[in-house]
Design a protein around this nucleic acid. Structure first.
Length: 703
DNA sequence: GGGGGAAGGACCA
DNA sequence: TTCCTGGTCCTTCCCCC
């Protein structure tokens, strides 16, 4: 067995190894100089013996095995290999150096202890005591008083209580945080309209253009009057009631509000001054402080924003030497995208800070995947993305729920359905569809399993997703049968599953503006993968529907290229026109006619009802009475003969099973795939999915 | 050997 | 009293053509 280096505790007894995994992560502002030993002892005592602990132990062993395997590989690396690798690395370095860009001014802004700060602002009595936001099972964030006890985000509340018995835990109130976040974003947009929000409390901005303009601004355009009413929510308590996250001993505790009301604050034209102004405005608008990092790229800006937290900012000047100086002693763990596992792997190789990454790059290139070592190389050179891409596609969306042990299959299926409904609602909000349905379950031993199913078409409605998720769950139930499936978590996820990135949303027949989905990947990874990713195979995106128009990114073919006639999804008549506007108008007319005769619902016995809702989703009749929905039965317009939505041919049968069978046959002949290649495929796709999945009950759906 | 799906896992707040 | 989240994307493995 290979003995691990001193730095790495992996070879020690299980408990030592476990501590490295479960120990306090004090890599956060306000947590410097804590008594780690004491805190870790409390965490360990609170956790030991639990199933969670056992599972962590298991995961720890797996990571240790990875480390060991890597070290064995390292032992087999010959000098000759290293020399060859170094040549390749050097070549890569000179290429990267040639493309180094220092001209952009990228800012990362991060609100200080955001959720906690909002709560303290609204409940001043919380301001001077340790508090956290979340629940007994999990905390989302904590204030700086609580951090002094080792209480931090992602820590279970019951452990936090052991660390700090006086801790006040306030439940999450997302509506409130969203409202504050939108106020902050209003300020951001004055500096960069295309800023990239990463979460409610964090964003990247490129202020290069703003600085260009700002240079010519007169002083009055850069002056802000300290306004009495925003300053003084409670008369006479100015200092106390504002900037609640400020902590006496913390750096950067100088509040902008120390100035008397009525005083005019003038900001300069430099990047530092622009960012100081931005933070000043945020504080006046929300009574909350923000920290910021200014650097030539996103990776560095993110690291910088943490440097003078809370209520501070830090800038790396746009010079190579300055960047390299900054990187020199930067611990790898501070870099976004490097977590505890990667940190441990690197530590086993004697790499703890970024400069060491550079020194051992040849070895890293032999031990890690191409994507990984390219990423490390970028970090070691202080490189990152210099262009903020806001419209990159979201790749998946999921919703999950943790609960006490659940072992009854029926209850599990009911919960699964609820999750699919929640997910469908979220998808609807963003107008997204996807092909791959994934069910994730965690059993009472904390073992996680994921099961996925990729459909030949995109889905978005609760029923469609549930049909797949339910089958996946049943498969798991069968797998453990006759034992019960003992779960503590279920998750439903929908991912793109298709190679094509589709078009701007136009849900149903009503146009909706496209809202870019939030992006949560560390930007460094995104940026590096944009240029260096060579074998990522699952980066398929969720897509939005483009039913009747298309936007610039849409690659749809022009209407005239459509190989199939347009068939009205309501009356099933083939249209003589290929003009989409006229086609839309016809459908609107049909819908009106149908709505007027709504009483005729159910005239086609045995069918479910075809609906067109404002958002364009085709849903089963059970949900049709939502406001704004218009429901139509297939029989409403009196077209008893069934028209196949795939081939467009009228079917002689009135029997739904036979009809469904025909549609399935058509689909099997890849007609759908052909339709996807056409410009307005979603008209057909929507119709098809209605018939096969939603409109007429599929026999397998009735299980 | 490459493409793509499935499963597991890393990372973040 | 309470007893370790929720969300997203990346990597790896494996199968199929």
């Amino acid at each position: 067995m290979t003995v691990l280096p001193e730095k790495c505790s992996a070879a020690g007894p299980a408990e030592d190894g476990l501590l490295s995994r479960m120990a306090l992560n004090d890599n956060k502002a306000g947590m410097e100089g804590l008594d780690r030993e004491k805190i870790n002892k409390i965490i360990l005592e609170a956790s030991k013996g639990s199933r969670f602990y056992e599972n962590e132990l298991k995961k720890e062993r797996q990571v240790n095995q990875r480390v060991e395997k890597m070290l064995q590989q390292k032992g087999r690396v010959a000098e000759e290999h290293l020399r060859t690798a170094q040549v390749q690395v050097d070549k890569m370095i000179s290429e990267l150096e040639r493309s180094r860009e220092l001209s952009r001014v990228i800012v990362h802004v991060d609100m200080d202890a955001f959720y906690a700060a909002v709560e303290m602002r609204d409940r001043p009595e919380l301001k001077d005591q340790p508090m956290a936001v979340g629940s007994m099972s999990m905390l989302s964030t904590s204030n700086y008083h609580a951090r002094r006890f080792g209480v931090r985000a992602a820590m279970p509340g019951f452990i936090a209580k052991k660390l700090c018995p006086n801790l006040v835990i306030v439940p999450l109130n997302f509506d409130k945080y969203k409202a504050v976040s939108s106020q902050v974003r209003e300020v951001f947009s004055d500096y960069d309209q295309n800023f990239l929000p990463m979460s409610l409390d964090e964003a990247y901005l490129d202020i290069t253009a703003h600085l260009e303009m700002r240079r010519n601004w007169p002083e009055c355009q850069r002056s802000y009057r300290v306004c009495a009413e925003t300053l003084l929510p409670e008369a006479g308590e100015k200092e106390e009631s504002l900037s609640p996250v400020l902590f006496d001993e913390s750096p950067g505790t100088t509040s902008s509000f120390q100035d008397p009301p009525g005083r005019v604050e003038v900001f300069g034209t430099t990047a530092e001054e622009a960012v100081r102004e931005m933070r000043f405005r945020i504080e006046h608008k929300t009574s909350l402080t923000a920290s910021a990092g200014i650097a030539p790229n996103m990776m560095l800006a993110k690291v910088c924003s943490d440097k003078n937290k809370p209520n501070g900012q830090y800038r790396i000047p746009p010079e190579r030497r300055e960047v390299m100086d900054f990187i020199l002693d930067l611990p790898v763990r501070k870099v976004p995208g490097i977590g505890k596992v990667t940190e441990k792997m690197l530590a086993a190789l004697g790499i703890n800070c970024c400069s060491q990454l550079g020194q051992k790059m040849a070895l890293l290139s032999l031990l890690f995947s191409e994507t990984s070592w390219h990423h490390f190389l970028q970090i070691s050179l202080g490189l990152g993305s210099t262009h903020i891409v806001r419209n990159s596609e979201r790749k998946s969306m999921s919703t999950e729920r943790t609960f006490g042990e659940m072992s009854v299959a029926e209850e599990q299926l009911t919960l699964c359905k609820e999750l699919c409904e929640d997910l469908a609602q979220e998808l609807l909000k963003e107008g997204l569809k996807g092909k791959t349905v994934t069910l994730k379950v965690k059993n009472v031993k904390f073992e996680v399993k994921t099961r996925a199913l990729t459909l030949p078409y995109s889905v978005s409605s609760a029923n469609e997703i549930y049909t797949s998720a339910r089958d996946l769950l049943r498969a798991e139930l069968d797998h453990v049968s006759p034992e019960p499936l003992r779960l503590r978590l279920q998750q439903a996820e929908l991912a793109g599953g298709g190679a094509k990135d589709l078009c701007e949303i136009q849900a149903g027949f009503v146009s909706r503006p496209f809202t870019p989905p939030p992006i949560h990947t560390p930007p460094t990874i995104s940026s590096s993968s944009a240029t260096l990713k060579t074998h990522t195979v699952t980066s398929t995106s969720l897509h939005t529907d483009s039913v009747l128009t298309h936007s610039p990114p849409c690659t749809s073919a022009p209407v005239s290229l459509m190989p199939h006639p347009l068939t009205c999804p309501v009356c099933f008549k083939d249209m003589e026109t290929s003009d989409l506007t006229a086609f839309n108008m016809h459908i609107d007319e049909c819908l009106k006619c149908s709505a007027a005769q709504k009483g005729d619902e159910g005239s086609l016995s045995g069918s479910r009802v075809l609906e067109t809702v404002t958002a364009g989703e085709l849903q089963p009749a059970g949900e049709k009475d939502k406001p704004g929905d218009v429901s139509v039965t297939s029989g409403v317009c009196g077209h008893t003969p069934l028209v196949c939505p795939v081939c467009g041919q009228m079917q002689e049968t009135a029997d739904l099973t036979t009809f469904n069978h025909h549609v399935d046959e058509c689909l099997n002949h890849n007609v759908l795939l052909e339709l996807r290649e056409t410009g307005i495929q979603t008209v057909h796709e929507g119709t098809v999915s209605t018939h096969t999945l939603t409109w007429f009950p599929n026999t397998q759906d009735t299980r």
